[in-house]
């Protein structure tokens, strides 16, 4: 088991190297570089001046030297300077990473709190009115574009009803650590989380419903019934255990998906997270920041996949890799 986990983690190394190479090459291929980016606000800079700065930044070195330089620093958490914000990228990311992780984690938890019971109800009592309502809701969750829905939520609950703030992550006037601070944070989170979660339920509900319908007909469920197991226990002990297992395994992937989804949510709710920064930085061609963000989300995907594999190998006795 331990061996499998270690091997699975080692596989990440080549994956990450490949990822960073691709990102690096793509960044290089983009028109303009850090220097052009730094001088967009200064139309008076001459080509000679820019060339000099390029030289001093090592931008004229062969690509592999530049790559080595970049990756060496990135590993230590140094992604260089943001030319727009005139401060280290790392510094820029710090508070936002925490905000995005909080948003993603809460969204995920809420998603599961909504989707697992609904999926179970729809799967167990198929073709009842409850199932039909859930399936209809799920159809809307699938068909509604995230940004449209988020804008609608914002408009309704913030502008019209005024129940929730329309932006930010917390009111800066409130002292950190107090009860008010917590409540205010929750208030700020509410709309972004609900907008994300109410639509993100789609996959889990759909999956769970179908899997329960399939599992219901499996032979081992007949075996359980033939033992005299009461219907409720047939579900909790046999059907749900089997159907929920892949959901536990998708956990790792789910969270990476949410980090990706945060781009829209954060911009719409002006929530100071990575997604919002990403959109801003693309607009201002703040390329060191963009590269760092792509690298971070890419790493999250790789780590998430690994987590999924490891969780699956722990919860499913059939996967016992020596």
């Amino acid at each position: 088991m331990l061996k499998f986990i270690i091997r699975r983690m080692l596989i990440m190394i080549p994956q990450l190297i490949l990822l960073s190479l691709i990102i690096f090459v793509l960044a290089k291929a983009m028109p303009g570089d850090a220097v052009t980016g730094a001088f967009v606000s200064n139309p008076n800079a001459t080509p000679e001046q820019m060339e000099k700065i390029r030289e001093s930044f090592g931008l004229n070195d062969p690509w592999y030297v530049q790559y080595g330089h970049w990756i060496g620093k990135a590993v230590q958490g140094d992604f260089g300077m943001s030319f727009v914000h005139k401060q280290p990228v790392t510094h820029l990311l710090e508070s936002r990473v925490a905000n995005t992780l909080l948003l993603a984690a809460v969204t995920m938890i809420v998603t599961y709190i909504i989707s697992i019971p609904l999926g179970i109800i729809a799967g167990r009592w198929t073709d009842t009115w409850a199932d039909k309502i859930i399936v209809t809701y799920n159809y809307f969750a699938f068909a509604t574009p995230l940004f449209v829905f988020a804008l609608l939520m914002l408009f309704l609950f913030s502008f019209i009803l005024g129940w929730f703030p329309s932006g930010g992550s917390v009111d800066i006037r409130i002292e950190t650590g107090t009860w008010e601070y917590f409540v205010d944070k929750a208030k700020h989170l509410f709309l972004p989380v609900m907008s994300g979660a109410l639509l993100a339920t789609f996959g889990t509900i759909q999956y769970l419903r179908n899997d329960i319908i399939d599992t219901k007909l499996k032979d081992f469920v007949k075996t359980a019934r033939s033992k005299g197991v009461p219907e409720g226990k047939v579900y909790t002990r046999h059907i749900l255990r089997n159907s929920l297992l892949p959901i536990a395994a998708f956990l790792g992937l789910e969270i990476t998906g949410l980090i990706g989804g945060s781009i829209f949510i954060e911009s719409i709710f002006s929530y100071p997270g990575l997604g919002q920064l990403f959109i801003q930085s693309i607009g201002t061609r703040d390329f060191t920041v963009v590269t760092a963000l792509v690298m971070i989300s890419g790493t999250a995907v790789v780590v998430g996949t690994m987590l999924s594999d490891i969780i699956l190998s722990i919860v499913d006795p059939r996967i016992r890799i020596d």
């Binding site: 499996k218 081992f220 007949k222 075996t223 033939s226 005299g228 197991v229 089997n242 006795p317």
Partner: peptide, 22 residues
């Protein structure tokens, strides 16, 4: 349910699928 599994026992065809894998 008081009778099934007690007085009545059932053996199924396919032993590969008749047991709960977990």
């Amino acid at each position: 349910n008081k009778i099934r599994g007690k007085d009545l026992g059932m053996i199924f065809q396919d032993p590969m699928t008749a047991l709960n894998p977990l």
